[in-house]
Amino acid sequence: MPVTRMPRVPPHKMSGPVSSEDPRWLGFLEAQPEATPFHHPAWSRALAQTYRFRPLVFLQTGASGAVVAGMPLLEVPGPMRRSRLMSLPFTDSCPPLATDVGGLRELTGNLLRWRREARAGQLIVHGALAPQPDVRVVTRAVRHVLPLAASGDEVLGRLKGSPLPRAIRKAQREGVEATVSQAHEDLELFYRLHLQTRRRLGVPVQPRRFLERIWTHLIDQGLGFLVLATYQSQPIAAALFLAWNGNVIYKFGASDRRHWELRPNNLVMWTAIDWACRRGYRQLDFGRSELDNEGLRDFKRRWGAMELPLRYSYVAARPPRSTSPVTKRALAALIQTSPPAVCRALGELLYGRVMSFA
């Protein structure tokens, strides 16, 4: 007697692109230890509202209907009316998430198929997709991840022979005070230092409205914090961190160079580490460092952070070109020798429009 064969159920059913506010996405993220604040819908919301990009999430569901893989995307205007898909601009690392290797492979294949059917342009992912003939994975930079402990003192205890504990004690001895804040009124203090720092480095400052969106959608919602260092009641250094799901990300840092000898930046970082340790966070991501910035890489390694490659995935004829060194030098000279308004104006002009600044 012939056996009736049941139709084979695919191991993963594609749900496809959905709203970034789909509750299934946040529910999936909360069960993934690798999910960071950059995966959270609030980060996509801040980017989308600042630069008028369209946010979405590409979901992979299993046979039961539960999400098994996914990634946030922003639809960014591109040339010839073909939108780019990015995960995500202005974001150091945002790899796709999956419960297993098979789920990531299925997600990658279905994502590429959907892109072709939608006739979208470039697909840029700030993370590694599964190997596919159309996917080019390139190491663009490095990041540094610090495993946390029960307290900041325990983290410092690992750093035998490091100058960092001495620098922190010096800042405290000299009267520098560092406090953790989520108060909206401290945004103005941070922005002043941030503008000063970006101008000193010769790079455009992000639009103020971007920081305001970060504050509204993340800081005010308990998804981040500011550490502010003051000396004789004057702000001299600050850093903005995003924090969620056991992961803390160092996003922006700023300082007044006239007070560097007081070591405020070391105290700011240690204060953030201690705050995160005491609240049970697992790790701190120091963010992206360019491959040729050995000084910054060394500073982050001194904290005991592990250096990891930042691999980005491109589905395009070729990866987008970085800004040329000649252009960078000319831009830096213009910013450094011009009033602060030029630094602000260039940020408004370039961020969100020129993809090498994303």
Score class of each variant (00 low, 15 high):
R140Y: 04
L97Q: 10
M71S: 12
T108V: 07
P37D: 12
A171P: 02
L159Y: 13
P89L: 07
F241R: 00
D92S: 14
L201T: 05
S93G: 13
V248H: 02
A183L: 09
L195D: 01
V142M: 09
R45D: 12
T91Y: 00
P7V: 08
T323M: 15
Y231L: 14
G102T: 01
E348T: 08
D153E: 14
R297C: 09
Q336Y: 07
A239R: 02
W114H: 09
A317H: 11
P17W: 14
S83L: 11
P163K: 09
S151P: 02
P11Q: 07
K300T: 01
R279Y: 06
G109L: 09
S87F: 06
N293K: 04
P79E: 15
A316M: 05
S181Q: 02
G175I: 13
F225G: 04
T99Y: 04
F58G: 06
G161T: 09
V67Y: 00
R140Q: 13
W244D: 06
V135D: 06
L148P: 01
W25S: 06
L156D: 00
R302N: 13
H144N: 03
I214M: 11
F210K: 07
R54Y: 14
S93K: 12
E34R: 13
A330R: 15
R45C: 13
A243D: 04
A358M: 05
W43S: 06
P131D: 13
E30S: 13
A150P: 00
H39W: 10
A330F: 08
W43Q: 07
S338D: 01
K251P: 00
M86K: 07
Q132E: 15
W275Q: 00
N265C: 11
P17S: 15
V342L: 15
Q182S: 14
K13T: 12
P207G: 12
L291E: 10
I168S: 01
G253D: 03
Y281D: 02
P339D: 13
E117Q: 11
M1S: 14
R329E: 15
S64N: 12
L284G: 05
G62L: 08
A332I: 07
P147R: 01
P79V: 14
G78R: 06
Q49M: 06
Y51V: 08
Q206E: 14
P23A: 09
G295W: 03
A330E: 09
A46C: 08
I219T: 12
G202H: 03
E34Y: 04
D134Y: 03
V354P: 00
